[in-house]
């Protein structure tokens, strides 16, 4: 629509430069993933002797094998006598924590945001001040730990969900969104005899579906990716979520100074675990991308 004018040579050069630059850049962004995926299927000996050249060497014969591909790492990851149980259990834990946690997040954030969206509400200012203050000033790691502990949540999944039930920043953006809903709708509904809760559930929420999808995604990704809460609050290693298991597998050096013969997990095994931890996010991502494109932009600008 803009190109009323014909492209000059300058513009064409400019276009080529930008296309090439961005293509290369976006490839750099994904090459590490591709490398990890390829490496997870490679033979261990190949990984130890190749770097970049793995990409083509994997097709070449290795020793007396026709090529470098093997499923050994995945067999080991899902080996029920080995770490298989731990991996599957932690995946299940992560899925549950992500689903439950996101529900709690959305529930608490939207209810509070809606409550705060009424400007005439008595006490609103106090609550807003509290929220803003705690955004910039907190008790810190140990005092929060002591509170969580004294609530009896240490070593329970509640500690992974409740202490982070609301992100103040997200909640304020949701509130902004609710405040911009047309007031007429609410009035009409209240004349129809709806309570505030009714209006919230029947009108406000359905109108903000894309935004909820966005924040659901944000919270969900946050839960799936988090390991630090689990490190802080979980004691029993059989309760660990996937990211913490992943961290332990990757960190495992096997270097007990008293027992130098202990072997660390192979690199392919580490790669396979990384792939398993990343794939779910990458699968969900394209479906939600169109939502957050719209949702985040509206929210982010105002925030």
């Amino acid at each position: 629509m803009i190109s009323i004018r014909r492209k000059t040579l300058n513009d064409i050069v400019w276009d080529v430069v930008i296309y090439v630059l961005l293509t290369v850049l976006s490839l750099i962004m994904v090459i590490p993933f591709i490398y990890v995926i390829v490496a997870s299927f490679a033979r261990e000996s190949l990984i130890q002797t190749t770097s970049m050249d793995l990409f083509w060497k994997i097709f070449a014969p290795v020793g007396n094998h026709p090529n470098g591909f093997t499923l050994a790492a995945y067999k080991e990851v899902f080996d029920m006598d080995g770490i298989g149980i731990q991996v599957l259990r932690s995946l299940a834990v992560s899925v549950c924590v992500t689903v439950f946690g996101t529900c709690v997040n959305l529930f608490c954030s939207t209810t509070m945001a809606y409550g705060l969206s009424r400007s005439s509400l008595i006490g609103k200012t106090v609550i807003m001040r509290m929220v803003l203050f705690t955004m910039v000033f907190g008790g810190g790691m140990i005092p929060t730990f002591l509170v969580v502990k004294s609530l009896g949540m240490y070593d329970s999944y509640a500690a992974l969900i409740l202490p982070g039930a609301i992100s103040a920043y997200n909640m304020l953006i949701i509130r902004n969104f609710f405040m911009e809903l047309p007031a007429g709708l609410e009035e009409a509904a209240s004349i129809d005899g709806c309570t505030d809760i009714g209006i919230f559930v029947k009108i406000a929420l359905p109108l903000s579906l894309p935004m909820l999808a966005t924040f659901g995604l944000m919270y969900g990704v946050g839960h799936w990716n988090s390991y630090f809460d689990a490190l802080l609050y979980l004691d029993d290693s059989s309760k660990y979520p996937f990211q913490l298991v992943l961290r332990n597998v990757v960190n495992q050096t096997g270097a007990d100074i008293d027992n130098l013969d202990e072997l660390p997990p192979s690199d392919t095994l580490k790669m396979a675990v990384i792939v398993i931890g990343t794939v779910p996010i990458l699968c969900v991502y394209p479906f939600l991308q169109k939502h957050f494109a719209a949702g985040v932009m509206t929210g982010a600008i105002k925030g």
Binding site: T111, G115, L121, M130, T144, V147, L162, A165
Partner: peptide, 26 residues
């Protein structure tokens, strides 16, 4: 606004328990 306060309740409790109470821990 009684229903609005009910909606606010979980969030406010959250902020009091996990954000304000730890301040005493200082």
């Amino acid at each position: 606004d009684k229903w609005m306060y009910l909606l606010l309740l979980p969030g406010v409790l959250y902020f009091i328990i996990f954000k304000i109470v730890p301040l005493w821990g200082i």
